[in-house]
Nucleic acid binder design. Structure first.
Lengths: 353, 353
DNA sequence: TTGTATGCGTTATCAG
DNA sequence: CTGATAACGCATACAA
């Protein structure tokens, strides 16, 4: 006979804590008069059990306030009911919404997300993924990785992977991609429709697939409208507010004429707005400004920013749901909604000279 | 003899995965010619071992690429090297920085944060904490909870707790509080120094201790300056952009005269700026506007927002470090730096009539 | 359908 | 200083 039934004492004395939640499956079995395996079966639905015993177990579980220990579960069953989520920076206004979507979706199924930050660094992403694997997560969601396709495909052979921000087909992997090209096209088209012909573009980091696609959309729209593309109207940025601010300053210093700016993301557009303000240029009277992503803040800039809506929350939700499907052995098929342009107050027809 | 040495096959066939990281402590022991206990001792520094054996084990670990399984560790040792972090919304521009600080600090010591969102709801916070406890986190950091002091103190009897946003002393608990009163006083004083006398205040939710303190600081500064406090100049808000926008609209509709607005947080100040813009009031020429928190976005509003700097990243770092100390049996003593006011361009002396 | 026995990978408690 | 050996709490072949 074992001595497991000895009540465990709480941390250093203290008042008798209320219903210590450390009840084990074995105790439940004992209380219900069945074997531990039966309790386990009921918990996991692994097999059919007699209604009578099931009732007894359910009652015991409720009475004792039993809650299974995920750690033990993980060791024994190999599943931890947790999935890793590697993002770039946990406090990014862009990824934030996606994280919320992932969390909402996973928790609905009893899974917990394990968030880690990759810091826009492939080596660090690798460490993060290895750490997650060592923690035995059941799967990993990678939001916009720096890591190469082949590295991701390799990981996918070891455990289910959902990646965003790229096209990629591989076994055990599901890729979710937003139509950045179309988004870039829409934003540019909006400015063209207003009558703008000289439209500056603040680009993102060219190592970023999203950024390249958005630029491609910009060029495609110009081409379709018969407006020549001019390299001098393209200013490089890094997707940060400050890089947007500096891009506009360079643009202005170049004395290149333009009546509108399309920024490859909202964060750079925020910086751009400040740079314009500093040069006493008003938005949209002197210069129209449109962004991309529709961050929460875009609604509250002065004036509110016209931008391409990027469904980040849904992106997170869908990524979470896809992971759940992968885990269940199903093949996900959900896709992201198409981009739509939100015209607010930062863009209008160019001023007559 | 057990059959553990049988190589485990990867997921459904596939190319022979590179160095399968599933090496066990037992295999290391075997390879090094020592007992598993010795390996464990070396790993944990639990006891002194002969240099010779230590070398052999270190070599075996390196050669086999062994990495301890945290799940098994958690089961056997009772420590999971993970700490729960309950925040309100994972994508909040305010909490984001704190999460980053926590992550940076914890990971430095090999701990992983487990982020969960409480959604500004005491009942949900309780569920989150219970979930974290069931996952056997070693401690919990609670960022600005809705939960009452007594509930937190009770939890602290079960596992180490670090809480922010309140004063509280209890065994096993460390509270970290920012001087919101002084911050509110500083912001108001700044406006008074500029010559403002009719200063509107956009308040936060009064259930929020921070919000009450900031209001108290506002009143204290007025009092010290001999400026009468007027209830009609106080507009309630909920710390969201939209509530700030509506607060200003109500203020303006009330026809109450004011030359400056102090918003209890930056998010509401962002909304306030938009409301002023809509009414064709310029910041700071017509109305001065100051915020509180110094969010990343405050640098890029047009014009940049004068505000009280709230060291959120440091808050996270210190909370993480304090948790580490608690876990090590030490008593944390670190405190938050005092508030400082950052004058930018949204505030200036009132216009002469 | 249900119970028994064993293993999951590590730490901890013993002797030696 | 080191090595057996027993937990840790649960899942799961296997037997009944």
């Amino acid at each position: 006979m074992k001595t497991k039934t000895v009540a465990r004492v709480g941390r250093k004395g203290g008042a008798a804590a209320q219903a210590d939640t450390r009840v084990t499956l074995e105790q439940v079995a004992l209380a219900a008069g069945v074997s531990p395996s039966t309790v386990s079966r009921i918990l996991n639905g692994t097999a059919v059990v007699a209604d009578e015993k099931r009732a007894a177990v359910d009652e015991a579980i409720a009475r004792l306030g039993f809650v299974p220990n995920p750690v033990a579960r993980g060791l024994a069953g190999g599943r931890t009911l947790s999935v890793g989520v590697v993002t770039q920076t946990i406090d990014s206004p862009f990824f934030g919404g996606a994280l919320r979507g992932v969390e909402d979706e996973l928790s609905r199924a009893g899974y917990s997300p394990l968030f880690v930050s990759g810091h826009w660094n492939a080596a660090h992403e690798t460490r993060c993924i290895d750490m997650l694997r060592s923690r035995r997560v059941d799967g990993i969601i990678v939001l916009t990785a720096r890591l190469g396709d082949s590295a991701l495909a390799a990981y996918a052979q070891q455990l289910p992977l959902v990646v965003t921000g790229r096209q990629l087909k591989a076994p055990g992997l599901y890729a979710l991609n937003f139509d950045n090209f179309e988004g870039g096209r829409l934003a540019t088209q909006h400015l063209l429709d207003l009558g703008h012909r000289r439209i500056a573009f603040i680009a993102g980091d060219p190592r970023h697939p999203d950024a390249k696609e958005r630029l491609r959309g910009y060029r495609a729209a110009l081409l379709a409208a018969g407006v020549p593309f001019e390299q001098d109207l393209v200013a490089p940025g890094q997707y940060t507010e400050d890089s947007g601010r500096m891009a506009v300053e360079r643009l202005l210093d170049s004395r290149e004429a333009f009546t509108a700016i399309f920024s490859a993301n909202d964060q750079m557009a925020f910086g751009a707005a400040l740079a314009l303000h500093r040069r006493h240029l008003r938005v949209p009277d002197d210069v129209s400004l449109v962004g991309f992503d529709d961050l929460a803040g875009a609604l509250y800039t002065v004036p509110p920013l016209s931008t391409v809506h990027h469904p980040v929350y849904e992106l997170g939700q869908i990524a979470g749901a896809a992971m759940l499907q992968l885990l269940a052995g199903e093949q996900p098929t959900a896709r992201l909604p198409p981009p739509r342009f939100i015209a607010r107050e930062s863009s209008r027809e160019p001023r007559q000279r």
